[in-house]
Nucleic acid binder design. Structure first.
Lengths: 246, 246
DNA sequence: CGGTCACTTGATCGTCTTCAATACCAGTGG
DNA sequence: CCACTGGTATTGAAGACGATCAAGTGACCG
């Protein structure tokens, strides 16, 4: 059974058995803090939903009724100024947990950049779930701290790095995206976001992003087979640029 | 008894009764998650230390052996690039909890900008303490989420706001510093940090900070009685500037 | 006093932005 | 098959904001 709800599709969990036990995202997400035995309860709390690319499923300043756990696709998280200036604070991929809010409103908006599927947890019910599974709360703290560290790194980038350094940092970061720790970073990888998204993430303009990438190509640092794909040719150079050397 | 240890002074808890029960910082910190009865154990875990202004008591990339809870003074938290460029990621005042780290090393450095007193908790012992007091862990998650929200706001500032907007945001923020929620923000308040610190916090240079403050003064938005004191004359104008309007 | 340090102010410079034109690419329908 | 369209990316020229370089002021302190 499939239900249409505004522009999003809610997938009925009854269509399968416990939806969590075979979830692709579990090993990457907070849900792996819960044992197989207890997983059914988690599954009962989750509302699995799928939204199209371009759909905004979290709106800044709206009441924060739910938490989200992304199980497929990528979303961009951003804040806006009244005149439309936008800062993308991060990209949320598979396993990413969204919606941690202090006050009762979301601190940012989230928009799918590809088709996105997520588990939605009503706030109150997750609250109760966390009380019963302290391991999950511990995991959540870990996640929050991780994000905090990433945010500080991004502040360094936005406040003190040059355009070249920002792009280099971004490429190095993307090459490691979704790659398990022990694996080597990929040399060839997709960029699911547009130039405009990259610009708003790095605090630059589309033109500067485009020019800088072109420059990297002409310097033999990267290759750009398709507009949303990158091949790194000289990783060492990119990494030292990203780190602020030269 | 007072012990000298490198450039820091360790205050012996035995000098008083339980040091936590009368701690000025408690109502502002994570420690208020613990009941009076259990407070003694917290006190036994804490090592109260005092450091002078200018002393760096957390060094980025060093092994993260301890957590810190500031009970007096203010510290700046920052990251450096190899060539010395610096980004201050925040100022930590009374009640602020420091040292949450994912990996086993600190993600930033911390330097006292005034004499600072803090409680230091050895990592392993706090770990155990948290297992026994889940309320404190919950509180820690809250704190982390709060910081995350602040960090995202700062990314917006660093990535998309003009120098004027950054300074206005900074002044508005400082006017609310350490003021309880229901109280009105102060119109007159101190700036414990130097222009250089402000610059490194806002991603600007000292000169731009100085010029912009002078401009605000000439526009009748603020007054600067002493170099580390500010008086807000036109809060509305500052706030709308901070929000990106005009 | 001379010295240091933090801040202010002025003049010039450069990086990135802005404005504008062009190229590219996928999808659609004649 | 090809022209048309809308969105996205690239490239060029001019401009602005903030950085850099440099000099001057004021406070504090030995």
């Amino acid at each position: 059974m499939i239900t249409l709800q505004s522009r999003s599709i809610v997938l009925d969990p009854r269509s399968g058995a416990d939806p969590c036990i075979h979830c692709d995202a579990r090993p990457l997400s907070v849900c792996n803090a819960i044992s197989d035995a207890d997983l059914a309860r988690l599954g009962a709390t989750a509302i699995v939903t799928e939204v199209a690319a371009g759909s905004t499923f979290i709106e800044e300043a709206e009441p924060a009724h739910s938490f989200f756990n992304i199980t497929r696709g990528t979303a961009k998280l951003f804040k806006l100024l009244p005149d439309g200036r936008r800062q993308i604070t991060g990209f949320a991929g598979v396993g990413h947990f969204l919606g941690l809010a202090v006050s009762d409103t979301y601190a940012f908006s989230a928009e799918a950049i590809e088709p996105v599927r997520f588990c939605r947890f009503p706030r109150a019910r997750l609250r109760k779930l966390l009380d019963d599974f302290p391991a999950m709360e511990k995991r959540l703290l870990e996640v929050a701290v991780n994000e905090l560290v990433a945010a500080q790194e991004q502040m360094l980038l936005l406040g003190r790095k040059t355009a070249r350094e920002r792009l280099a940092s971004f490429l190095v970061m993307q090459s490691k995206q979704g790659v398990a720790c022990q694996h080597r970073p990929r040399m060839r990888f997709p960029l699911p976001m547009t130039r405009s998204d990259i610009a708003d993430y790095l605090g630059l303009t589309i033109e500067t992003v485009s020019r800088t990438l072109t420059k990297f190509r002409s310097e033999g640092l990267i290759e750009i087979p398709g507009q949303s794909e990158v091949l790194i040719l000289n990783r060492r150079a990119l990494e030292s640029l990203a780190g602020g050397l030269a």
